[in-house]
Design a protein around this nucleic acid. Structure first.
Lengths: 120, 120
DNA sequence: TTGTACTATACCCGATGATGATATAGATGG
DNA sequence: CCATCTATATCATCATCGGGTATAGTACAA
């Protein structure tokens, strides 16, 4: 069944937590708790998603079609029946690219005005 | 009088509107309406700050010490008594630099995972 | 001098997003 | 069998954001 998606731009700017979750799911599918750990690891502990932020973000992202829940566990060894795995959709990747574009433009303007050093 | 400021990091992530306002004030002091126009121009009309967002953001930024209201108009020619001019504080520049650092790190992680193209 | 279009600041209110606290329960290991 | 970690989930509350609206000074020309 063909589903209509809105323009990726209409979802911008993305909430910060949403972008972090997209990055965490980029290289492989993960369950919720693993996303939380991955974001913390990638940011050297600077970003600690609370459970409330994580699961309310995931719910919204499911509704928006940015991520999807996987039917089969990608890790058959795991005995943990509680885990629910999520993966990026093609639309999710498009939106991430659009948000990256927006952030890049914002940073480049900040550099032009001299607000931040040219080299970071 | 010496005023204590919190660590710039404690204000992160900045609301998107706040960062745009910091950029608009980077090269010169501006009054509210001029900030609105500058942000729209810089973003090719993509970001249109509503009056509500603009003035509630400015109020918060004044309280946080990111911007300050200028006593004297930097434009003595202007006959418009309604205009209120704002300028960046040193602390505002520090916070902008910290936010830029955060955004840059987020983008670099997104590139590492292959979520977005290396070259944007 | 009147009107009307534009500039400028300001606030109310509803929608959305972020987060601390809390709840529930399976997994793990001594 | 008990403590601790893992894992998902919701609630209540606060912050952010923007549409709509109000108010009023400015500019300009009919």
């Amino acid at each position: 069944m063909k589903v209509e998606y809105p323009s990726p731009d209409s979802l911008l700017p993305l909430p910060a937590a949403t972008f972090h979750i997209l990055v965490a799911l980029a290289d492989r599918d993960r369950h919720g708790y693993s996303i939380m750990q991955d974001v913390a690891a990638r940011t050297s502990g600077k970003v600690q998603l609370s459970a409330a932020t994580l699961y309310s973000s995931i719910r919204r992202m499911l509704e928006q079609g940015l991520v999807e829940e996987l039917r089969d566990s990608p890790d058959p060894d795991s005995q943990d029946q509680r885990r629910r795995y999520y993966g990026l959709t093609a639309f999710g990747r498009k939106v991430a690219a659009a948000e990256a574009q927006r952030l890049t433009a914002m940073l480049s303007q900040a550099r032009e005005t001299g607000l931040i050093p040219k080299k970071i």
